[in-house]
């Protein structure tokens, strides 16, 4: 009975997902084994695309950029979580913050890009501020050492509102009476975060971690396109941008599919690891 109900409840979703997501994935896996170029379907070439990837310097660079990006993941989760807890705990002006923090998420990446383009220019406002502090100007988006970090900070700023919103929804499941006693006292707050909020919120934190991982690996294109175009050199080329390049400008769907498959495997591996880590911590 229970299982029949479950399947009935899942059926419409599963049909849609199988049709529009899983089937195309299998098709993409097939495509990645061909040398398709332009509209020519291409012949089966086995793992040749994957072998080419292994020796493609642009792909290698995109992978090391990805590792750096993933290393910043804890910030992407903790920053909105902390803000959500503070707002939920009734920090003064919390309602105002709740309303404003979501605003960047609404704006298009073109606008966000235009603003930060100008702020981060070598003769831009950020450098003007640094100059006041006596620090030499930095070409934030134009030097290989700072471009990726600048991009990450802008994207974090532009999207943390969404995670914040999800955490706020999750916090509504934390039993109110447990929280009431706690005030905004530093020590008590820390105790409460560790012993009440985080255990209750575990599935939601796990959710945000997984979704953020996917988000930073698949939806930074808009900002990359406007802010750095993958440069300087390949220092902000992420796999997603490379897929766009190979699929559009270089017109090689087979090769692009191979990069997509690697990206898919990478995300799946990360998500699995995240869920494992979260569940182990929960058992402790």
């Amino acid at each position: 009975m229970e299982s029949r109900t479950a399947w009935a409840f899942l059926a419409p979703s599963l049909v849609l997902i199988a049709l529009f997501r899983i089937a195309p994935l299998i098709w993409g896996a097939q495509l990645s084994l061909t040398d398709a170029r332009g509209i020519t379907p291409g012949d089966y070439v086995g793992l040749a695309n994957y072998r080419e990837l292994a020796s493609d310097p642009a792909f290698q660079d995109s992978m090391s950029n990805t590792i750096l990006l993933i290393a910043t993941l804890p910030v992407w989760v903790c920053f909105p979580l902390l803000l959500a807890i503070l707002i939920h705990q009734g920090v003064p002006g919390g309602r105002f913050y709740r309303a404003t923090y979501f605003l960047p998420a609404i704006l298009s990446s073109v606008i966000v890009g235009s603003i930060f383009n100008t702020l981060l220019r070598r003769d831009g406002a950020v450098n003007a501020l640094l100059k006041l502090a006596g620090i030499a100007p930095v070409d934030w988006l134009g030097s290989s050492s700072t471009a990726l970090i600048s991009l990450i900070v802008v994207q974090l700023w532009a999207t943390f509102g969404m995670s914040l919103l999800i955490f706020l929804a999750g916090l509504s499941t934390v039993p109110q009476d447990m929280i009431e006693a706690a005030t905004l006292d530093g020590a008590k707050l820390r105790h409460m975060i560790w012993h009440i909020i985080i255990p209750t919120l575990r599935p939601i934190i796990e959710f945000v971690a997984v979704v953020t991982t996917i988000g930073i690996l698949t939806s930074m294109f808009g900002l990359i396109y406007v802010l750095t175009a993958g440069g300087p050199g390949t220092s902000t080329t992420l796999p997603e941008f490379l897929i766009w390049l190979e699929l559009g400008k270089l017109n090689r769907p087979g090769y692009a599919a191979a990069i997509s498959m690697v990206l898919f495997a990478l995300m799946a591996g990360l998500a699995w690891a995240q869920i494992r880590i979260m569940q182990r911590n929960a058992d402790v």
Partner: peptide, 16 residues
């Protein structure tokens, strides 16, 4: 197109 992409990348490294 592939050469142009490589030129874009290399030229930035040259300037830097």
């Amino acid at each position: 197109a592939a050469e142009l992409e490589a030129l874009h990348q290399q030229s930035q490294l040259l300037l830097n």
